[in-house]
């Protein structure tokens, strides 16, 4: 085999490794290895949910009581998850300040904005929460929740909000004011635990009209996380 042939084969192998999937797969495997460690700490179930969601296999998600149990574990477990993984920002949304401090990177520097090249965008990540919430919603619907009672107790705020909204979207009977307020409070509570950089939830604070709830943007939807445009706009505003 000539040296050129060997070089070309090496180049092809390198290209395949980085762009063919094995590199990403290894990164995922590393996350799984971490999950295995967490499993021994009693949080593995929740991590498993995340990994299944990350695999884009919602059908594999657990249902029923298991889903509720997993949701309860989620909040405690996610603090250990790799925040650079593509689904982790959504996980961060479920954490309180102390927990997020544990996963924050760059101790001597303020956090950097996400970027298109580094897929920290929440869209995929929040999908995890949506998936789980939808599962939870499926558990609770039917029957419709009794009035003035939180139909999804024990969940994190974001998961509860998503679950309740899932009920609305599924054509559940109109929410009572108390339930609407519960959604609102849940969403707000969830966003409170969300880093400002990533959080953009629109709420209608001065109304409890259930019909307006349907127009709520989905949790996690927000403006372009990349602030290039914002910065350049700022330059323009100042005559640059």
């Amino acid at each position: 085999m000539s040296r050129l042939t060997r070089a070309l084969i090496a180049a092809a192998l390198g290209l395949f490794w980085f762009w063919g999937g094995p590199a990403e797969q290894l990164a995922e495997d590393i996350s799984r290895a971490r999950a295995e460690e967490l499993r021994s700490e009693g949080a593995g179930l929740a991590v498993e949910v995340i990994l299944r969601a990350a695999d884009d296999a919602p059908d594999a998600l657990p249902r029923g009581e298991e889903a509720l149990a997993l949701a309860e574990h989620l909040r405690a477990a996610l603090q250990h998850e790799d925040h650079t993984a593509r689904w982790s920002e959504g996980a961060l949304a479920l954490l309180d300040d102390d927990q997020r401090a544990a996963v924050k990177l760059g101790a001597d520097r303020p956090p950097l904005p996400p970027s298109r090249s580094n897929p920290r965008t929440p869209a995929e990540l929040v999908r995890l929460v949506e998936l789980l919430s939808a599962q939870v919603g499926a558990v609770s619907n039917p029957p419709p929740p009794p009035p003035d009672q939180d139909p999804l107790p024990g969940l994190s705020p974001v998961a509860r909000a998503r679950g309740l909204l899932a009920l609305v979207e599924a054509g559940s009977p109109p929410l009572t004011p108390a339930q609407a307020r519960a959604i609102q409070a849940a969403a707000l509570g969830g966003v409170r635990a969300h880093e400002a950089l990533y959080a953009e939830v629109s709420v209608i604070l001065n109304t409890l009209d259930p019909s307006l709830l349907a127009s709520l943007p989905r949790l996690g939807e927000r403006h372009d996380p990349n602030r290039a445009e914002a910065a350049l706009a700022a330059l323009r505003r100042r005559g640059g």
Partner: peptide, 20 residues
């Protein structure tokens, strides 16, 4: 204002009557 903290980072959408 019905939410837990004044340090929330929310974008509000007041209706025509404004934010109470």
């Amino acid at each position: 204002l019905h939410w837990d903290s004044v340090t929330l980072h929310l974008t509000l959408l007041p209706n025509e009557e404004g934010l109470a």
